[in-house]
Amino acid sequence: MLIGHDHPLDALTATGVSIWLDDLSRELLAGGRLEALVADRGVVGITTNPTIFASALERGERYTPQLRELAATGTSVEDTVFAITTDDVRAACRVLRPLYDRTDGVDGRVSLEVDPGLAHDAEATIARARELWAAVGEPNLLVKIPATADGLGAITAVIAEGISVNVTLIFSLERYRDVIDAYHTGLETAAFNEYDVSAIHSVASFFVSRVDSAIDARLDTIGTGRAIAAKGKAGIANARLAHEIHAESLASPRWRRLAAAGARPQRPLWASTGVKNPDYPDTMYVSGLAIPGTVNTMPGATLEAFADHGTVPALVLEEIYGPAQDVLGEIAELGIDYREVTDELERQGVQKFAASWDELAGTVRGQLGRGLAEHRSSQR
Rank of each mutant, 00 (worst) to 15 (best):
V316S: 13
L317W: 11
L317A: 12
E318Y: 08
E318K: 09
E318D: 15
E318S: 13
E319H: 15
E319D: 15
I320L: 10
I320D: 03
I320C: 06
I320H: 05
I320K: 08
Y321D: 10
G322E: 15
G322L: 14
G322A: 15
G322W: 11
P323T: 09
P323F: 09
P323Y: 08
P323S: 10
P323Q: 09
A324C: 06
A324R: 04
A324M: 03
A324H: 01
A324N: 01
A324L: 03
A324K: 04
A324F: 04
Q325L: 13
D326E: 15
D326N: 13
D326T: 14
D326M: 13
D326I: 12
D326P: 03
D326A: 15
D326R: 15
D326V: 15
V327R: 10
V327C: 10
V327H: 07
V327E: 07
V327M: 05
L328P: 07
L328H: 07
L328G: 03
L328I: 10
L328Q: 09
G329E: 10
G329V: 05
G329M: 06
G329F: 05
G329S: 08
G329D: 12
G329W: 04
G329N: 08
E330C: 07
E330G: 10
E330L: 11
E330H: 10
E330I: 09
E330Q: 13
E330A: 11
E330T: 14
I331R: 01
I331Q: 02
I331E: 04
I331A: 02
I331K: 01
I331G: 01
I331T: 07
I331P: 01
A332C: 06
A332F: 04
A332G: 09
A332W: 05
E333N: 09
E333P: 02
E333F: 01
E333L: 09
L334I: 07
L334F: 08
L334H: 08
L334A: 09
L334Q: 07
G335R: 08
G335N: 02
G335D: 02
G335F: 07
G335Q: 06
G335K: 08
I336A: 03
I336T: 00
I336K: 01
I336R: 01
I336S: 02
I336P: 01
D337I: 02
D337N: 09
D337E: 06
D337L: 03
Y338T: 10
Y338C: 04
Y338E: 12
Y338I: 13
Y338M: 06
Y338K: 01
R339D: 15
R339L: 13
R339I: 12
R339V: 14
R339H: 14
R339W: 05
E340V: 06
E340W: 05
E340Y: 03
E340H: 09
E340K: 04
E340A: 11
V341T: 00
V341E: 02
V341G: 00
V341F: 00
T342Q: 00
T342C: 00
T342D: 00
T342R: 00
D343V: 11
D343E: 15
D343K: 09
E344C: 04
E344F: 11
E344V: 08
E344Q: 13
L345M: 04
L345W: 02
L345F: 03
L345H: 02
L345D: 00
L345K: 02
L345E: 01
E346I: 06
E346N: 03
